[in-house]
């Protein structure tokens, strides 16, 4: 079965991203397909490449990145939600005249249409939020 996951909360503040990660891992282990993981609301903050969690804690962004690499996951960050919160990739930073970018290369920025398309194409959409 094809699943699209929607993650609406940032890392650490809420468990939503952790739950979604464990769900994604379990789904993949059972042979399901993760069609897309879409990050919205404060969920866009999961894509920061600059977070430095304490060494005895999990690294949520790196966990997602590793899972994405292993299973070629399509991890999309909503551009409107990201811009509002200062999350930029290098291209967008250039376009907006900003001197820094912070999106982890495992994620890419795109429009909300990717969420809707993901919801249409997948058999199930599962929302993880607050």
């Amino acid at each position: 079965m094809k699943f699209t996951l929607l993650i609406n909360e940032g890392p650490y503040q809420h468990q939503a991203s952790d739950t979604a990660y464990q769900f994604a891992k379990a789904a993949l282990e059972k042979g399901h397909e993760i069609y897309r993981v879409f990050f919205y609301n404060d969920g866009v903050n999961n894509a920061t490449r600059l977070a430095i969690p304490p060494q005895d804690d999990r690294n949520i962004t790196e966990n997602w990145a590793a899972l994405a690499k292993e299973h070629e996951l399509d991890m999309v960050v909503c551009i409107a939600a990201a811009q509002r919160r200062g999350m930029l990739d290098a291209d967008e930073a250039g376009r907006q005249g900003k001197d820094a970018d912070n999106i982890h290369p495992a994620f890419h920025i795109s429009g909300l249409g990717q969420l809707v398309e993901g919801a249409i194409q997948a058999d199930r959409l599962i929302t993880f939020g607050d």
Binding site: M1, F3, N8, Q22, F23, K25, A26, A27, E29, K30, H32, D123, R124, L125, I126, T127, F128, G129, D130
Partner: peptide
Amino acid sequence: VDYAGFVDLVAEHSNVQSWL
């Protein structure tokens, strides 16, 4: 249920509503 059971529940039902 464990996470695998969570996945099974999602697959076995027609759709999922997360009450946020």
